[in-house]
Structure formats: C-alpha cells, structure tokens
Computed example of a mutant assay.
Amino acid sequence: MLDTKARHLVEPAIDKAAILFLKSGLTANFVTWVAFIIGVTSGIFIYIEQPILALIVLWVSGFLDAVDGTMARQTKTTPFGTVLDVSFDRLVEISVILGLAFRYPESMWVLLILSVSIIYAMTIFLTVGAVTEKNGMKSFYYQPGLAERTEGFILFSLMIILPNYLLIIGLVFIVVEIFTSLQRLKEAREILK
C-alpha cells in the first residue's frame, strides 16, 4: 500500500540518486546487485545481535532497490533485470527471516508460517503480473495490496528491534499477508474474466 500510495514522498530522493548513479556510469543491474549484497547481510547482522546494522543495511538495500527500478525506466528495462530485481528482493527477505529464526529458534514456527504466507502472496502477485495484459509503471503489471515491500520492511524492522514481541509481530505480519493474498485474488478474478 505504501509503495503505491506514498511513493511520491520519497520519489525526489530516488530520482536524484538514479540520475547521480546513471551519470556515474552505473547500470540498473549493477545497483540491483549492490542492493542484494547489502540486503542479505541483514540476516547475518540479526544473527550476531547487531540489530541497528541489520536495520541500516535492510533499508539501504530497499532504497537502492527503488533506485534501480527508476534507473531502468530512465534507460531501458530488460526482462532479465526484472527477474534479478524480484528474485533478489525475496532473497533479502529470506535473509531476514533466517537471521531471526536462527537467533530466536523458539519463534521459528511463526517465521516458517510467515515464509509460506509471503511465498503464496508473491505467487499470486507474479502470476497475475504474468498473465494480465495490463501494463503499469514497472515492466509487468504491478498488483497493489495492503502488504507491499515497505510494509514488509516496517514489520521486519519491528521484529528486529523488538524481539520480545517477535511472535506477536509475526502473527500480525501473517494476517497482513493473508489479507493481501485475498485482496489480490479478488482483483485477479475481476481483471482476468
């Protein structure tokens, strides 16, 4: 929801970074790789009990993830760039979940269910994007929902900084993902008739 409704608030910073990187000769795919490498370290920092570093690398990665898309749209988007972007996003999320699971094994079951709910929500998102003829700002149809990347980052951040409430936050996150899945299924039924 925030990616769709509030992007305009951070768009100036994203645009400036994209222009700077392009002028520096960087490509969108290079920035995608950098965002990925930075982002996956978040799980390591969670595991070694460095929550502030985990938050910093997670959010820097998320910012660069927005910048790489803007760079691609300002030059030329490629199907492979889209594959890298979407798949690397999931690996960053997996890193956070694994870091939390290994640091707090007593909460592993909620993190496993959370993983399943994210996989299902993303399966709907990607399948609708692949089979619909609608086009959006991205190189595929972007199906908005209650839980988009920013909401995920906010909930992951709360899990990282409030580990005593990991179970409760995880359960809320699961409910948000289930709601988003149902929301996307309903929209898919309407647009794919």
Rank of each mutant, 00 (worst) to 15 (best):
L112Q: 07
I113M: 12
D89F: 08
T82W: 05
L114A: 04
V67S: 03
A72Y: 15
D85G: 11
L111D: 02
T70I: 03
L98M: 10
S107N: 14
L64T: 06
I97S: 05
P79K: 15
L98C: 10
I97E: 03
W109H: 13
P79R: 15
A72K: 12
V96F: 01
G69E: 10
P105I: 00
I94G: 07
D65T: 06
G62V: 01
Q74K: 15
I113A: 13
D89I: 10
I97V: 15
D65F: 03
S117E: 01
S95N: 06
I118Q: 12
G81W: 01
F88W: 10
V86Y: 12
E106T: 09
E106A: 10
V96S: 11
T70L: 09
L91F: 14
D65V: 02
F80L: 15
T77G: 11
D89E: 09
I113T: 11
T77E: 15
R103S: 10
S117R: 00
A72W: 13
S87M: 15
D85K: 14
S95R: 02
G69N: 08
Y104T: 02
K76Q: 14
V110L: 05
L98Q: 08
R73W: 15
S115D: 02
I119Q: 07
T82P: 00
R103N: 08
V92H: 08
F102L: 15
S95F: 06
T78M: 10
Y120S: 11
F125G: 05
S117C: 07
D85V: 09
F125Q: 05
G81Q: 13
F63K: 07
V110R: 04
P105E: 08
R73F: 15
S87C: 04
Q74S: 13
D89C: 10
I94W: 06
I94E: 05
L100M: 08
F80H: 09
R103I: 00
T82H: 12
T82M: 11
V116F: 14
V110A: 06
L112E: 08
M122N: 14
F88L: 15
Q74H: 15
G69H: 04
L91I: 15
I118D: 10
M71S: 11
V96K: 10
W109Q: 06
M122W: 03
T78H: 12
K76W: 01
F63Y: 06
G99I: 07
I94Q: 01
I118C: 14
F63S: 07
I119Y: 13
Y104P: 01
V116H: 07
Q74E: 13
G81E: 11
R90G: 05
R103C: 02
K76Y: 04
A101H: 08
V110K: 04
I97C: 01
Y120H: 13
T82L: 08
